[in-house]
């Protein structure tokens, strides 16, 4: 059991009468890419929000590397190495791409009560940021204001910021949503280079991406995990097929 990095026990979150998260158990092993799939409204984003510390669960606990982090807020969890991307791209739109990533580096480079020296002249912040941008193929876009980047580039930038925090686990909420075919293919390729080196929770609608990347998959329906297993097991699971067919019939 030593290799379980994130252990979710009996998580519950209700909004009024809606049980968005209904007694969820998950264990994420170190180094695996674990996809969470499910029809719209299954509670995937609510679950991610609770894992990242943006939403407080009503019951249950979350343990990260053996430590109970249920009571910690988002910034404290980020400092422990849980880094998330958002379904709707969340970046600093009026800063340059490089500033965005350098800020993420700065967040993990000790306290920021340094009042005088321009942060833009600090190579300990800028150099790692440049390297990460380069890795994501944004090297020559470093000085462009983030708002002026293409939509796909903005999504890549957010992943770059997440990586710049040197996370021990990534929580990616639909990283290829809204991307063109080429862009999304590049993103999947990039994420596959992280496989094995990073522990990743991947919430995604794009089944190609999921089956390419995931080591294991958990299926969330009406806030409950109805199945967990390897991609082959999930593909063969009749309950999963029913849940998805049900969704298609409604649509």
């Amino acid at each position: 059991m030593a290799d379980i990095l994130l252990d979710v026990r009996g998580l519950v979150k209700t909004f009024g009468a809606l049980r968005a998260t209904d007694n969820v158990y998950l264990d994420i092993r170190a180094g695996e890419t674990h996809a969470i799939i499910g029809p719209n409204g299954a509670g995937k984003t609510t679950l991610i929000g609770q894992l990242a510390g943006n939403i407080r669960p009503d019951a249950g606990g979350i343990h990260f590397d053996g430590e109970d982090i249920t009571g910690l807020g988002a910034s404290a969890r980020a400092r422990k190495g849980l880094a998330r991307s958002f379904q709707i791209t969340s970046i600093y739109r009026e800063f340059t791409a490089l500033d965005n990533v350098a800020l993420a580096v700065q967040a993990h480079a000790g306290h920021s009560f340094r009042f005088w020296r321009p942060a833009s002249k600090e190579s300990t912040l800028r150099d790692p940021a440049r390297t990460i941008l380069h890795d994501l193929g944004l090297g020559d876009r470093a000085d462009v204001q983030a708002a002026n980047l293409a939509h796909g580039e903005q999504r890549q930038l957010e992943i770059a910021m997440v990586l710049a925090t040197r996370p021990r686990m990534l929580l990616l909420d639909e990283p290829v949503a809204g991307m063109g075919v080429d862009e999304s293919q590049r993103m999947v390729e990039f994420l596959s280079t992280l496989k094995g080196r990073q522990t990743i929770i991947l919430v995604e609608h794009d089944m190609d991406a999921v089956f390419t990347l995931a080591d294991r998959i958990s299926v969330l329906v009406y806030g409950q995990v109805i199945a967990s297993g390897t991609p082959e097991e999930i593909r063969a699971n009749p309950e999963v097929r029913r849940a998805y067919l049900g969704e298609e019939a409604e649509a």
């Binding site: 990242a52 943006n54 807020g73 988002a74 910034s75 980020a78 400092r79 880094a83 998330r84 958002f86 969340s90 970046i91 600093y92 739109r93 009026e94 800063f95 500033d99 350098a102 800020l103 993420a104 700065q106 967040a107 993990h108 920021s112 942060a119 910021m161 997440v162 710049a164 925090t165």
Partner: peptide, 17 residues
């Protein structure tokens, strides 16, 4: 940079730590 970041996007600022 921290206070400007918090102005620009508080949620992101917390999410990076």
């Amino acid at each position: 940079m921290v206070i400007r970041a918090a102005k620009s996007n508080e949620v992101r600022t917390r999410a990076i730590g």
